[in-house]
Design a protein around this nucleic acid. Structure first.
Length: 566
RNA sequence: CGGGGCGUAGCGUAGUGGCUAGCGCGCCAGCUUUGGGUGCUGGAGAUCGGGAGUUCGACUCUCCCCGCCCCGACCA
């Protein structure tokens, strides 16, 4: 019997002063987690139960698509990471054993599993397969934050697929994506699968699963038409510029003394920010080639999209570089008659009457027309904004979100350096094609707290709640309300429900407040008042909706009610 | 890594170069109350983050260190 009088559930009336994020505040207050250090969290019994439920959903859905669960060590030889080329990553914890051998604490398990697979798989007959584990990850995060949303140690389900070719990888990826969809549905979250940047890892495609919530550290672009993308890669049609000046036959120089910023120029010339061509002097790639990137004055450059468009990283030019390589002081650089090639954002196509830097101090040009006055390459390199439209015509909105999972087509990124190959039908050695698939159960739990929490506390989805039913008795030892509650506890168990039983000798208000804080989907109350009426009071946490159940058969009725909850 | 902030009892906080560091919640005991954090009385609980220094005297001032939080950068 899980009695609150014997259960380690240290609820707090007030959140720690330094807690900011809703999930951080509520999870600490509800007695689910306690902090041990920066980014280091202990899961107390009730918190662990929620975590385990998230894990179990993941485990079942992985199993359903034939992903085989195993377990690999966190402590690993450095040599594997040196071979894969990831040893230099700052986030990787590095240490030595007593003999001075270099070891690492794994941040994921590509190296470990791929090195096993390299020794196990010989033939195309051994492929394909998928394997996963649920194991601790260690990352030396520069800035842990928001309770368990970003920590230095956390548990992750990481799965890996091994196929003989690109087509096999694509199929495995699709299978995993479907399993992921089911996992987040079952977890009861609002979630989106968004295209994501493949980042420095290269790869052949990637998606992130994003759960919108206030404490999210990513931003997703969403539309009612179903568009969903990380702002890092999102693409949309810009809103038209209101108040664009009339076109001119040719650019006209105007004096703009000291007007270096968009704001100063718009004020000086009385035009909207969208009428400006904002010049962003850029140095591209290892060769540091100068490139003038231009975007609309009211738009922001997206550095990730720029790097993707260029095929290599780029950075902003320093002031000295601007003067030396671009030929004018910062603030007066423009695409017309400049010294360097121009890359224009797609949103500048077809605009006229624009204002741009004149490439000489204290002067701008009016009536500039891309395509007529300068000949840029075009690319989509700006960040989308709320109010833009996506291809379906629906309006984009931006929401903060937490990444709860990601899936990634690795290709041969790890199989080649670690020698994971197979022999094909013709006896030729081929690299294995891999995919990796990660989910953080702690983030699922925290995202649920974020999405459904209210002033009173947590409001769990049925599938994640530490307990199914919070049973409150208002009777003391020896009273009827206590005896009946004891019986109903047993009956609820026979209905297959997990029950937390508040048998404390506390006031009703205190018990109700704690129940709402802990947030189990259904609360049952048994007190003298309800007993005299022949009833048990049921309260649905989501919406705090009260109703009375007949005492006779109350457990069965409660179970039925519970099964209908979200 | 850059910027900002904070460390006083389990949680939230007040405090002043000077006498036993105060309050609320929580905790313990007794009584009281019993359908929304009940009331009363009594009590326990603090190396004031650590070290060094200034001073007759430091929780308070100075320096160093440690820890934690937030913003940004970063982030498979």
């Amino acid at each position: 019997m899980t009695r609150l009088t014997r259960y380690l559930l240290p609820t707090e009336r007030e959140a720690p002063a330094d807690a900011d994020a809703l999930s951080h505040r509520l999870m600490v207050r509800a007695g689910l987690i306690r902090q041990l250090g920066a980014g280091l969290w202990t899961w107390l019994p009730a918190g662990l139960r929620a975590h385990r439920r998230a894990e179990q959903i993941i485990r079942e859905e992985m199993d359903a698509i034939g992903t085989q669960e195993m377990l690999m060590p966190v402590l690993q030889p450095a040599e594997l990471w040196q071979r894969s080329g990831r040893y230099a990553i700052d986030e990787l914890f590095k240490l030595q054993d007593r003999r001075g051998a270099d070891l690492v604490l794994a941040m994921t398990h590509e190296e470990a599993l791929t090195s096993h697979v390299a020794r196990i798989v010989r033939s195309y007959r051994d492929l394909p397969f998928m394997a996963s584990h649920i194991q601790t990850k260690e990352r030396d995060e520069p800035r842990p934050r928001a309770g368990v949303l970003r920590t230095r140690e956390f548990i992750m389900k990481d799965a890996y697929s091994f196929d003989r070719d690109r087509a096999g990888l694509d199929a495995a990826y699709e299978l995993q994506a479907q399993a992921y969809d089911r996992i987040f549905d079952r977890a009861g979250l609002e979630w989106y699968r968004v295209e994501s940047d493949v980042g420095m890892m290269g790869g052949f495609g990637a998606h992130e699963y994003m759960a919108p919530c206030g404490a999210g550290e990513n931003e997703v672009a969403l539309s009612d038409a179903g568009y969903a993308a990380n702002v890092e890669v999102a693409s949309a049609t810009a809103q038209a510029v209101v108040g664009l000046p009339e076109p001119l036959g040719a650019p006209q120089a105007v004096d703009t003394p000291g007007a270096r910023t968009v704001e100063q120029v718009t004020t000086a010339l009385g035009v909207p920010a969208g009428a400006l061509i904002k010049a962003l002097p850029t140095m591209v790639g290892a060769q540091e080639q100068p490139l003038l990137v231009v975007v609309r004055g009211d738009h922001r450059l997206n550095e990730i999209k720029l790097a993707n468009a260029l095929g290599e990283p780029a950075r902003a030019a320093t002031e000295e570089e601007v003067v030396e390589r671009f030929g004018a002081p910062p603030g007066f650089i423009g695409p017309v008659g400049g010294k360097v090639p121009v890359l224009a954002d797609d949103a500048l196509r077809g605009l006229s009457g624009m204002v741009a830097g004149a490439n000489e101090p204290d002067r701008h040009l009016r009536g500039v027309e891309p395509g007529r006055d300068f000949q840029p390459d075009y690319a989509d390199v700006r960040s989308v904004e709320a109010g833009d439209t996506c291809p379906g015509g629906a309006t984009i909105r931006l929401e903060p979100a937490i990444e709860v999972g990601n899936i990634f087509k690795l290709g041969t990124r790890f199989s080649e350096p670690l020698g994971a190959t197979y022999l094909d039908e013709s006896g030729a050695e081929q690299p294995i094609w891999m995919g990796c698939y990660g989910i953080g159960p702690a983030r699922i739990v925290a995202a649920a707290v974020e999405q459904f929490g209210d002033d009173a506390g947590i409001s769990w989805p049925r599938s994640l709640s530490p307990f199914d039913v919070h049973l409150v008795t208002l009777g003391k030892e020896g009273e009827d309300a206590r005896r009946v509650a004891d019986e109903i506890y047993e009956e609820l168990g026979r209905e297959g429900l997990d029950v937390i039983y508040d048998d404390r000798d506390a006031s009703p208000g205190e018990k109700f407040a704690d129940a709402e804080l802990l947030g189990c989907p259904l609360r049952l109350t048994i007190g003298r008042k309800s007993l005299e009426a022949g009833e048990v009071e049921a309260q649905v946490r989501r919406g705090q909706d009260n109703r009375a159940l007949p005492l006779e058969g109350a457990a069965g009725a409660a179970a039925e009610l519970w099964r209908a909850l979200p």
